[in-house]
């Protein structure tokens, strides 16, 4: 019985599996995985989104394939096999991007082939897909990649906004329309450093600090709740003890 309880605690539901990468196990803000694209291609929201979509494609498909053939891959050649699988999907996604979104391809440049060495993708293949079934691996890949994309987009949003005062759309992606939202370029926001590498470090550092600040507050709050609960239990136990003492004293009298 105890074993069953433990198992059900470890196994996540499909929804939990999907959403764990959004915040709780976010690849960028928690595990600091895939920092190279997080710094290099997040100068605009659109390129961040584009890279996120490519990573979704590669991560989901590589997780699915690894989960499918995990039992056939000898352990001596696990990593080389995963790398071949991942690089196949990266090559495919590179070709598709160049064919159907050439401006995005030009903008992401060398960072598309570099998805091959994104630790997040190899990490999920090794730590999750090689030990779980196809469906769960696909969900895990999708959730983690979405979390990665959200984090990139958060960084890209802040960087583009601080650097240009606007958020443009339809520039790099093959959208049928283009323009910009929240256009405040004539106001305060025109800090060019945010579009450069230094800006990437500043924004990632700041967002990490904010994220960790929330996490610490949450932990403190949970700790406080726990303390309160313990105090409450102690108080109830003490009251019960006193009541029992009073009852026994009354009985004697």
């Amino acid at each position: 019985m105890a074993k069953q309880v433990k198992k059900s605690k470890q196994e996540l539901s499909k929804l939990q599996n999907l959403t764990k990468g959004f915040l709780k196990e976010n690849p960028i803000f928690v595990f600091l995985l895939g920092m190279c694209p997080a710094l290099a291609v997040t100068s605009t929201l659109e390129t961040s989104f584009g890279m996120g979509v490519l990573v979704i494609f590669v991560l989901v498909l590589s997780n699915v394939v690894v989960a499918l053939i995990k039992d056939f891959i000898p352990k001596e050649v696990k990593i080389p096999s995963y790398i071949v699988i991942i690089s196949t999907f990266v090559t495919i996604v590179g070709m598709l991007t160049e064919a159907y979104a050439p401006l995005l391809h030009e903008s992401l440049g060398i960072f598309i082939p570099l998805i091959v060495v994104n630790c997040l993708i190899l990490g999920r293949a090794e730590s999750y897909a090689s030990k779980n079934n196809v469906l769960n691996s696909a969900i895990d890949g999708l959730g983690m990649a979405l979390g990665f994309m959200f984090a990139l987009m958060a960084i890209g949003f802040v960087r583009e906004f601080m650097a240009t005062g606007a958020i443009a759309y339809g520039v790099f992606l093959p959208l049928p329309f283009e323009g910009s939202i929240v256009n405040l370029e004539t106001y305060l926001f025109n800090i060019a450093v945010f579009s450069g590498p230094a800006g990437g470090f500043i924004v990632i550092g700041t967002l990490l600090a904010i994220y960790n600040g929330f996490e610490i507050r949450k932990q403190k709050k949970a700790e406080l709740e726990r303390q309160k609960l313990i105090e409450e239990k102690k108080r109830i136990a003490l009251e019960k003890k006193r009541q029992r003492e009073l009852e026994s004293a009354g009985g004697k009298a």
């Binding site: 050649v77 070709m95 598709l96």
Partner: peptide, 23 residues
């Protein structure tokens, strides 16, 4: 091991060839 690597390599090659033909 050789067979598994051969199959994986061949499948990869086939997928890349197909995508290249397409794009």
């Amino acid at each position: 091991i050789a067979l598994v690597l051969l199959v994986i390599g061949s499948m990869s090659g086939l997928l890349i060839w197909g995508t290249n033909e397409l794009t």
